[in-house]
Design a protein around this nucleic acid. Structure first.
Length: 122
DNA sequence: CATCGAACCAACC
DNA sequence: GGTTGGTTCGATG
């Protein structure tokens, strides 16, 4: 993908996130691959998101299934909140003591969605 | 499966 | 230029 401004990149990422279907999640890596950046940058962008309510940033987790952080913090509280949100959205979650993970079943490739969308809108 | 360590890419200082 | 981050992936027990 062509080089983009940081601010533009943010908008794109936010838009992409909103394309995630209910009950599904994606990884930072998938997003990164689409926009042609590295996963960590994606994480940073998500942490800086200003429209927390509008942008379902809780649908983005680590590739391992481990839930990263939320709202720029890895506090236990935030993680629990994120997990709760996912749970409410019918995402399969595995809770093991202090660590929470998302089942592979709930992962979806954003690339796939994007491809379909492009196809339909063309 | 859980833990550890090393790589990567950009932003920031 | 060096440090840091909501990561990732492969190896090991």
């Amino acid at each position: 993908m062509a080089k983009l401004k940081y601010s533009t990149l943010k908008e794109i990422v936010y838009t992409l996130i909103q394309l995630i279907p209910l009950g599904k999640v994606t990884s930072y890596g998938s997003l990164a691959r689409i926009v042609g950046k590295n996963p960590r940058l994606i994480g940073k962008i998500l942490s800086e998101n200003k429209r927390e309510v509008i942008i379902p940033c809780h649908r983005v987790v680590k590739a391992d299934g481990n839930i990263g952080g939320y709202k720029g913090s890895k506090s236990f509280k935030n993680i629990m909140f994120k997990a709760k949100l996912l749970e409410l959205e019918n995402v399969s979650i595995k809770k093991k003591g202090s660590i929470i993970k998302v089942n592979r079943e709930s992962f979806i490739d954003l690339e796939k969605i994007l491809h379909l969308t492009c196809k339909e809108s063309r």
